[in-house]
Write a protein that binds this DNA or RNA. Structure first.
Lengths: 141, 141
DNA sequence: ATAAACCCTAAAGCTTACTTCAGGGTCAAG
DNA sequence: CTTGACCCTGAAGTAAGCTTTAGGGTTTAT
């Protein structure tokens, strides 16, 4: 079967050629076979691997963590529980962010609600609220 | 009310002294008044400001975006409508982040749900799910 | 009055995740 | 057989967000 060039692999996975080589240096992709002239040769397996990295990244894992996940796969002593624990940690972190983000949205939303959008900035309820809630100009008393 | 030293401010807001000075350079904190000997003097307002920055950061805003949020207060020639539009933009951005995070959480949660935490890593539903997209089993090498 | 604890500045360094650069080889098409 | 698209390497650069380093003053307690 025809091997993929680095460009074809990159295109298939939706990343840049440089990113592929970068991931290889980082150990996220195994060192591929080379053609007689030194060109990297990839298989469909590599496309899957690269997509795995992308998906894991989308889901909030750092490249380092993804490397660990990939390493877990080939360690016979690793348990499924290890992988699950990592996912649980990420979920807890995501929950924290969700909570904080909701608070932030609510705060900003309440400010915008009070603003008619009319008149000069001097009477803007948003600014008023931000000044009383979040701090005035830095004079102290 | 006695002013806070940079160390007291940092402690009160849970950041390092260096971070405070860094934020000042970045314009996220106004340049504070100085004592006769050049020491920075802060008020409680600064504590709130610094905490606001931390919360916004936790929620995924970049320091640049946080600067914009803070700038809502002091837009010199902006109409109230301008200010409101900025707030609305930020809210839309928050919504995007909320959506992305929810998706992320749901994806990870579904994976973890299917994982018993027992057995070896081979056959881990999390890794399987991350790997799988179209061609499930491996083809070549 | 001396030592610990704090404060100051400017500038360099670090981590993550890439991208760009400099300087070349290789391959398919015309 | 030359041109343009691709590929190679190693190294430097980028952006965000801090931290560390280097070299000094200041405050406070004993």
């Amino acid at each position: 079967m025809k091997p993929l060039s680095i460009g074809q692999l990159a295109k298939a996975a939706g990343v840049s050629v440089e990113t592929v080589r970068f991931y290889e240096r980082k150990g996220l992709l195994p060192k591929p076979r080379r053609s007689a002239s030194g060109y990297r040769q990839y298989s469909e397996e590599s496309v899957r691997r690269l997509r795995f990295v992308q998906r894991a990244k989308d889901v909030g894992f750092t490249l380092g963590e993804i490397g660990e996940l990939l390493a877990l796969r080939t360690e016979p002593n690793a348990s499924c529980a290890d992988v699950r624990a990592r996912a649980a940690t990420k979920i807890a972190l995501i929950d924290e962010k969700l909570t904080a983000l909701s608070r932030m949205k609510r705060a900003l939303g309440q400010l915008a609600e009070r603003c008619t959008g009319e008149g000069p900035v001097s009477g803007c309820p948003i600014l008023d609220a931000l000044e009383t809630d979040e701090g005035k100009h830095d004079a102290n008393s």
